[in-house]
Design a binder for these strands. Structure first.
Lengths: 156, 156
DNA sequence: TGGATTTAATTTCCTAGTCAACCAATATGT
DNA sequence: ACATATTGGTTGACTAGGAAATTAAATCCA
């Protein structure tokens, strides 16, 4: 089928796996962004809300670590979410440098709606895959994430 | 194994496939960004170079379409690449609104080095997958991309 | 031919990140 | 106990990209 070729040019762009991954990921995020903006939040804001949903309250630094963003970004993100009355910010009672972020009741009600949008968006984009493929895809994503310590859970 | 649960809370964040995809994609891009910055280019710049590599010259609008970015972004990206002496910009002879972007010889020499970095980065991140899994992952990415018209080739 | 429309690219304005400098509060070490 | 280092968070300067307005050229068509 294939003959050895002298001095091959670099693999076609399509052969860089990272390239396709970025294309697909960007498209999925983009699609999701369009969906959630109807609810008045950005993708990054959604992730913060979703992270906080599973905890009563969390330090900004922890949120930053789980999201893979800088503290500065979380600081501003928290500003916006406080403005939108979706997050309450309080100073930690024990260590007064510390802050703690928590969802407002409004946010707690909003998260399930956003989660449904996320699921719908996923369903739309991954519809071309068979159910078995979807499971495989998911499994491999997690496998890579786990290997790189991108667990979304505290590293310690 | 599983019992039906009344009023389940939204699927854990880990269950959103798009979430993991974004995590992995961001990590891969980030890793690659660190690698290519040694060569003095950004990831976006690399993609432009790589797209141009397979063509003698291309209109900015075509590059934008293939990369999934706006024309404005490509305009600025081209500015930077021209500054770096990696891209030549010329006005289309036939239609004087049109521009055409082409790699300089320096860029043409650089691209294979960058491609090697990309391949190395991919290898590093996807090392946890078996070769068979890597092929599957690649195939599924392309399948999704194709279904969404993210072919990297002209749509028409 | 000459005015309206379309098209290619650029530019302006805005948002959202990073990085690094910074401020405050807490630990540490002698 | 007190100066120093460390830690948690914020802020300022900067970069990259998107959306929409803008400019210039080409096409349409009466």
């Amino acid at each position: 089928m294939w003959q050895a070729m002298p001095d091959p040019s670099p693999a076609s762009l399509q052969d860089h796996l990272g390239y396709w991954l970025r294309m697909v990921s960007n498209a999925v995020s983009h699609g999701f962004a369009r969906q959630v903006e109807q609810e008045g939040v950005t993708v990054a804001e959604w992730v913060v809300l979703r992270v906080l949903f599973d905890a009563t309250h969390l330090a900004p630094s922890v949120v930053a670590e789980r999201m893979g963003m800088t503290r500065g970004a979380i600081s501003r993100l928290a500003d916006r979410l406080v403005d939108k009355k979706l997050v309450d910010r309080a100073t930690d009672t024990a260590d007064r440098r510390g802050q703690t972020l928590a969802l407002t009741p409004a946010a707690r009600a909003l998260v399930p709606r956003l989660a449904a949008l996320a699921d719908g968006n996923d369903a739309e984009f991954f519809a071309v895959l068979t159910p078995a493929e979807r499971m495989e895809f998911d499994r491999m994503c997690r496998k890579i994430a786990a290997a790189r310590g991108l667990t979304g859970a505290p590293t310690a």
